[in-house]
Amino acid sequence: MGVVVNIDDGKRTSASIEDLIALTRQDMGRVNELILSKAGSDVTMIPEVANHLISSGGKRLRPMLTLAAAQMFGYEGDGHVKLATSVEFMHTATLLHDDVVDESDMRRGKRTARMIWGNQASVLVGDFLLGQAFRMMVDVGSLEALDILSAAASVIAEGEVLQLSVAKNLETTEDEYLSVIKAKTAALFSAAAEVGPVVADATKADRAALRSYGTNLGLAFQLIDDALDYAGDTSSLGKNVGDDFREGKVTLPVILSFRRGSEEEREFWKSAIEKDQTDDEQLEFALKLMKKHNSIADTIGRARHFGGIARDALAPLKDTPQKQALLDVIDFCISRVT
């Protein structure tokens, strides 16, 4: 491509989740063992499909949030391990379903499960993982944790349907788009963070703080993903730059560019997104418009805004290594694009 989008605004950071990884390493070992156990089945295709995605190199950030949040309040049982595994299975199931809905060919640099085993297998194995997730939630014996995660599963499904309703719709407002990603992405971040203090019998205020933290972290995370699709590079993304554009997805950089553009520019977006005219030449022009209207930079700015809310949510909590690690996650998520 001939366009370089400058997204460096002087706020570079060497943010890392190494402390989070170190604090949860022992528990994550138990999570990984449970993942292998619960993904097993006498039906050969189920572990094959599940392990294809589970072993594909994701950071498993969401289950680590559950573990760290439980540790923060002194939890010493094993319920947080089962809940963290449930969270990871829910996430994996949504990825399997998403790739079918989005007709995606690549995920984390590998062919998607649907490209290897087909759409039907991907959907059904996703359903199997959801079933296993709920069985583990029941094993924990916390009705409140079960309520939080089951509600999140429902909201995520609503978000998927809502996304379909706004697909290729350039009249989508920023508020409508935020509603989509709050359901699709932020709901699981929120639940993952909240069930930790719930199982640790933390106060309602502490639970609310982690819930708010997770919601706003999830919003920031998704907005950075949106920016990365136009400003990242293929090697770090695990997919091709511009895949959202080629799939006709109306994400925030597109929404901002469309709304800020001239009538002629809006006609370009209509032909590109609504009529699937999204080859490399069109992508290059789309990037020029995004640079002209600061659409990517402002998407990152929105992400920083939600990151700030997540940071403030944790401010009243007592200082612990886990709290600091969760704060580092905010900087890490946003620094992926700088």
Score class of each variant (00 low, 15 high):
V4P: 08
N6I: 10
S14F: 13
A15N: 08
S16V: 09
S16N: 10
A22W: 09
L23K: 05
D27T: 13
R30K: 15
L36C: 09
S41P: 05
T44F: 08
I46F: 09
I46T: 07
A50H: 00
S55Q: 14
G57C: 01
K59V: 04
R62V: 09
L67K: 02
G74Q: 11
G74N: 11
E76W: 14
G79P: 06
H80Y: 08
K82F: 07
L83T: 05
T85F: 06
F89Y: 04
L95W: 02
L95Q: 05
D99N: 11
M106N: 10
R108W: 11
R111D: 12
T112W: 05
A113P: 02
R114V: 12
A121H: 07
L124M: 11
G126L: 09
L129T: 02
D139Y: 11
D139Q: 12
E144F: 03
E158L: 08
E160D: 14
L162Y: 12
L164S: 07
S165H: 13
S165Y: 10
K168R: 15
N169W: 15
E176L: 14
S179T: 08
S179H: 07
I181W: 00
T185S: 06
L188P: 10
F189I: 03
A191P: 13
T203W: 08
T203C: 10
D206W: 07
A208I: 10
A209K: 06
L210A: 06
T215N: 08
N216H: 06
G218H: 03
L228D: 02
D233G: 04
S235I: 03
N240Y: 09
T251M: 01
L252S: 02
P253M: 04
R266N: 06
E267Q: 08
K270A: 12
E274R: 14
Q277H: 14
L289H: 03
G301L: 09
G307F: 00
A313S: 15
A313Q: 13
A315C: 15
P316C: 15
L327K: 07
S335T: 01
